[in-house]
Design a protein around this nucleic acid. Sequence first.
DNA 1: CACTGGAGCCAC
DNA 2: AAACGTGGCTCCAGTG
Length: 483
Amino acid sequence: MPPTLADAYRLVHSGSLALAEVERAGIRIDVPYLEKTIENVSSKIKELHEGLRQDDVFKQWKQRFGGKTKLTAHAQLGEVVFGDLGFSPNPSLIANRGCEQGKTNTGKWRTDEGSFDHINLPFVKNWVRWQKWVKTRDTFLKGIYREVVDGYLHPFFHLNTVETYRSSSGSPNFQNFPMRDPELAEVIRKCFIPRKGRRLVEIDFGALEFLVSSCFWKDKAMVSYASDPSKDIHRDIAAKIWLCSKEQVNKNTRYFSKNQFVFPELYGSYYIKQAQALWQSIDEHDLKVKDIPMKEWLSEKGIDRLGNCDPREEPEDGTFEKHIKQVEENFNQKMFPEFGQKKEKWWKDYRKTGEFQLMTGFIVRNRPHSKNDLLNYPIQGPGFHIMLKSLIFSLKQIHKRKMKTLIVGEIHDCSLADVPDEEIQTYLNMTKYIMTKDVPRQWPWVIVPLRVEVEVSNLAEDGGNWYEKHLWDETKGSWGPKT
DNA sequence: CACTGGAGCCAC
DNA sequence: AAACGTGGCTCCAGTG
């Protein structure tokens, strides 16, 4: 019997109790470090601000806006750079539908970071940098500081706000602290520390979205990719996109294949958007095959331009657009034909009933939904539910075994725990078993093996924090740093 | 003064 | 016909 709406209710009920416990536990914050860091970042901001004020561009800015001059106003920056200084909008940016190149929906100049990529003006580079640090301080650092009580932070975790039946977090949002920008990640994540005698332990589900996707579409080839650790979908697609052998795929080319083709394709993007994004990445990130610059490499294969990317036109031969169109057709018709066919039926069925049910029993019928919603919700919701059920089971075990471990946070496909050193082995063994054995056993729709990725911080006494953490793995039931 | 939508940026 | 999804938070600029 597949999960019913009543099952879904029970999950939310016990999930709410579990997350209440997470909220109550709280995360230890290194308050002196946080205070010092706010000071340091403020000095950096002040310096950058001073530099901007002394720049000649700022004089022009003042001439233009006089008493209304406001250095934080994006609209004013746009007027100065693209209006007065006469820079053209970034030609490699893709214009929004119904938007003039380089402008927003309301007709103002776009002033996001990418809009300035092509402009080599120190003033502009520094302005972007300045804004980045202002956000770091005001949103993240001060957001934490404002909510700290007696050295602990208690972010909220909600189950009632998200259409896909994922969770959300607030006050502050625990789920969007910087991670990819190493400079920002370090400054902010060092605020989070374990309690005395403990370590922070983060356990992620590996590749959860792709695994859940396989469970939902039950496409044979997809399930095979998801089940066989020696197979790598992103590498294989990268080889097709970049016209090279699987062995010639490198970290970068795989990364962009994954994030600008495979996931977008699973969630309803299409070849024109993917081609544009990939083509832009080639120069932006200096993509290569072996040591050959990508555009040279592609040119040797007979592809020397992007193409018009006009949805009304058939792409021309010899364009990247045409090539990606073929990769897409191959993806949907040859590689994953069941995915290609089932998604049409899934959409048709929705059009008949106006509602759809997730594998975990939840029913979505709150409003009319787009085709892409129909592709995304069934993956995003149940992916989170796998994590939530694991969290619930872990807490149950922690209580039963009278452990002192505290689960202190959750980010969609991972949990963060504050674990006494002497409980580490128990906690990791127990949680891995729950995540990879117990939960799949309870949900027969999980038809592919689940996997975990474990990261552990140093002890509090050794300067452990959420930034400095180490991959751990298991050999014969014993966990330690990965060698 | 309270509120709102847009734009931007952070995460998964 | 349309064109990858879900959030939270902050600032500005405009409205009542």
